[in-house]
Design a protein around this nucleic acid. Structure first.
Length: 269
DNA sequence: CGAGGAAACTGCCCCACAGC
DNA sequence: GCTGTGGGGCAGTTTCCTCG
């Protein structure tokens, strides 16, 4: 598969919508370089009617960050996947741009960094009132193993106590309900909490992370994440949760995940 | 001053072709 | 037939430039 089709396949996989910034190239040295080729591709897709710009409400400050494009029916046909395409006409730009952008960053990173795995992403799943930002279905390569579900919760909050009280508590209630009603197999589920604070610029790409003030900010968020784990999460089942700083979204396979007990581990998929 | 465009550069792969 | 090599093309990038 050539990269022209590769990008469209990824776009369809992550739900059919994304920004230029989401599809940056991780291999470029500079931030600009990482967007250049993507920009070329987007332009030619748009000319060929394979993707469509979603009209924004106001005037976007930065188009690469804030203008979302969606795959068209023609685009799905072009990559030979017309029946997987669920056509949704997006009237306007996604309502919470930063949060949407983070979701697509995470979903796309799973595709890019675990290319041998088969993922299915959903953004509208709900279990006993808990709505994860992304539900990732991980197809097992081994037929004996069960399909797994990753419930990704993306949190951009000033303080960590809110992450615990507003989210993790609800997840625990959900697990209780599941156990009681025996509706799902709890061991198939893992909750991935992706955290950053509200001052973090979610549009920054890894190529921009070498700026001293950004490095400083990353340290700060890592500290907050450790506090979250140490103060609130110790008692949680060790394999049920994993915690990640959003700034590590581009290195998902690395040992960058925290267990509820505060150990750093890699994700087992 | 920053986003985006143009042009120039680079490393890699492919393939023709020569020499054995 | 096998294999080493060198040119050409191209995907992807860097650097420089323009324009609002």
């Amino acid at each position: 598969m050539n990269s022209r089709k590769q990008l469209l396949n990824h776009l369809l996989d992550i739900g059919g919508v994304g920004t230029l910034n989401n599809f940056y190239s991780p291999f470029a040295k500079t931030h600009k370089g990482g967007l250049l080729f993507t920009r070329k591709l987007f332009k030619s897709y748009a000319e060929d009617g394979l993707i469509e710009k979603i009209e924004t409400i106001g005037k976007p400050a930065n188009k690469a960050h804030e203008v979302f494009y969606c795959l068209t029916k023609k685009g799905a046909d072009y990559i030979g996947r017309p029946n997987e395409y669920r056509y949704k006409k997006y009237q306007r730009s996604p309502y919470n741009i930063m949060h949407e952008s983070m979701k697509f960053d995470v979903a796309l990173s799973f595709l890019r960094l675990f290319p041998h795995k088969k993922f299915t992403f959903r953004y509208d799943a709900s279990f006993y009132g808990v709505r994860p930002d992304i539900l990732i279905r991980v197809e097992s390569s081994n037929p004996k193993e069960l399909t797994r579900f990753l419930l990704v919760e993306i949190e951009r909050k000033k303080t960590i106590d809110r992450v615990f009280h507003e989210k993790i508590k609800r997840y625990e209630e959900m697990f209780q309900a599941i156990t009681q009603k025996k509706s799902h197999n709890v061991s198939q589920f893992q909750v991935l909490v992706v955290y950053t604070d509200i001052w973090w610029d979610v549009f920054l790409r890894p190529q921009e992370y070498n700026n001293p003030s950004v490095i400083n900010h990353i340290d700060c968020i890592t500290g907050l994440l450790k506090n979250l784990v140490n103060h609130y999460c110790k008692f949680l089942p060790p394999d049920r949760y994993r915690f990640l700083g959003f700034h590590n979204f581009y290195r998902l396979p690395d040992v960058v995940w925290h267990t509820p007990q505060g150990n750093r581990v890699a994700l087992l998929l």
